[in-house]
Design a protein around this nucleic acid. Structure first.
Length: 278
DNA sequence: ACGAGGTCCTGCGAGC
DNA sequence: TGCTCGCAGGACCTCG
């Protein structure tokens, strides 16, 4: 899926197309992505409703409607949110999950090959309780190093797993967890609660730094991620460890190593730069 | 409380 | 060429 920078890129691009526009003739083609809402009810609420605003929370795209409900889309691995100003070709129409006209001849599309992504419809109360169950936004102005360090003390999980735990911290997935841990020089398997204050501070800077840089680059495209216009991001060129298994560490030249021992996800790191002293 | 592993899906590339 | 297998930006669940 897109992680925070990719969803942020999507949301920024969606805003001018969707904000204030009326959703007409919405259609759902795959119903297994819906959560807590029936196809009929979703269509009923969306149809002829106006988009009040589009925001990001963690890795979710949040489309707030004039009537107060929020359509919350979580693209996960292969979900794409796209806006077309023409008819879709047959190959573009493949894997389309949801589609709606948004005025000026434009079409808003949610396309998802693997359909691990989800669409839910939440009223104000349900949204409030959901957003409170997710950790803080790492790029928020009021997210301090002290708060980050405090989060790490709450779990004995491997630091990499903790970074990706959405209940603890919002928006970080596998790519940026790998990158941040390398930047900070921390062993990904180290217990979160045993990361030193010094290392926690470095990791705080690294997480914010890598996320901000990736947002500025329009996200990372390894394979499936596309922005609203259908174009890939640019941050993949700047990745220091993710996808570089066997290549030399940019810092010390040691061959990078990949393991799947942490939460079954690929973890690429430098034995030498991310040693036990962290 | 934690870690390990399966599940939801489909496509792709590697290896035989 | 054609197959089988493992893997993929995620998250939720059960089991031990």
């Amino acid at each position: 899926m897109p992680e925070l920078p990719e969803v942020e890129t999507i949301v920024r691009a969606l805003q001018p197309h969707l904000t204030g526009s009326k959703l007409r003739n919405p259609k759902i083609f795959k119903t297994d992505v819906l959560r807590h809402v029936s196809p009929r009810r979703l269509i009923e609420v969306i149809n002829n409703n106006t988009v009040q605003d589009v925001t990001r929370r963690a890795k979710h795209v949040v489309i707030r409607l004039a009537t107060g409900e929020r359509v919350v889309i979580q693209p996960r691995m292969t979900g794409n949110l796209l806006v077309y100003d023409r008819r879709l070709t047959p190959s573009e129409s493949r894997y389309v999950v949801f589609r709606s006209a948004i005025g000026d001849g434009k079409t808003f599309v949610y396309r998802d090959v693997r359909r691990l992504g989800t669409i839910s419809l939440l009223d104000a109360t349900a949204w409030e309780s959901y957003t409170q169950s997710i950790g803080p936004e790492p790029l928020a102005d009021d997210f301090t190093a002290e708060r980050f360090a405090d989060i790490l003390t709450r779990t004995r999980q491997a630091i990499k797993k903790a970074l990706m735990d959405q209940r603890l911290l919002a928006g970080v997935g596998n790519i940026y967890a790998n990158e941040a841990l390398f930047r900070a020089g921390i062993d990904p398997s180290r217990s979160a609660d045993r990361v030193t204050q010094d290392a926690a501070h470095r990791l705080y800077d690294a997480v914010r730094g890598v996320l901000a840089a990736a947002v500025a680059a329009g996200g990372t495209t390894v394979r499936d991620y596309r922005n609203v216009a259908g174009d890939p991001g640019a941050y993949q060129q700047a990745l220091l460890v993710y996808g570089r298994d066997g290549a030399p560490c940019v810092r010390c030249g040691t061959r990078l190593h990949t393991t799947h021992s942490i939460d079954g996800r690929s973890t690429t790191f430098c034995w030498r730069c991310q040693g036990r002293s962290s």
